[in-house]
C-alpha cells in the first residue's frame, strides 16, 4: 500500500527531526540557541507526526467518523503551529529582558 509508505515516511521524518532537536538541546552552547533548537524542531516534528496520525486514521476508517477524527487532529496541529512558536518567542524575550548573556566568541 502506498498510503502506508507515506505514513511511515512522515513518522520517520518526524523522528529524525525530534532527534535533531534533542541533540541541539544537549549540545548547543547557550540558552538562546538551545531554545531555538527546541522550538523549531518540536513544532515541525509535531506537525509531521500529527499529520501522519491523521492519515493513518483516515486510511483505516474511510467514513464520516474517520474524517471527523482526522479533522480534530488537524485542529490540534493548527493550535500547536500557533502556540509553540509564540511560547518560544515569549521565553526568549523574557530572557533577553532580564539579561541572560548570549554566547559569543569572546567576553568583554
Amino acid at each position: 500500500m502506498i498510503i502506508n509508505g507515506i505514513i511511515v515516511f512522515l513518522l520517520y521524518l518526524a523522528l529524525v527531526i525530534f532527534a535533531t532537536g534533542t541533540a541541539g538541546i544537549l549540545r548547543f552552547p547557550d540558552f538562546y540557541s538551545r531554545l531555538h533548537a527546541a522550538g523549531k524542531c518540536d513544532t515541525m516534528a509535531a506537525i509531521l507526526a500529527l499529520s501522519s496520525i491523521a492519515l493513518y486514521h483516515l486510511s483505516e476508517n474511510p467514513d464520516l467518523g474517520g474524517v471527523l477524527v482526522a479533522l480534530k487532529i488537524l485542529l490540534i496541529l493548527v493550535f500547536v503551529f500557533i502556540s509553540s512558536p509564540t511560547a518560544t518567542h515569549a521565553i526568549s524575550q523574557a530572557a533577553l529582558i532580564i539579561g541572560v548573556e548570549p554566547w559569543g566568541r569572546e567576553k568583554k
Binding site: 493550535f79 500557533i82 502556540s83 509564540t86 518567542h89 515569549a90 524575550q93
Partner: peptide
Amino acid sequence: LNLIIQTSIRIL
C-alpha cells in the same frame, strides 16, 4: 513589545 503574544492569545 507584546504584540506577537497578544495577537496569538486573541486568536487562541
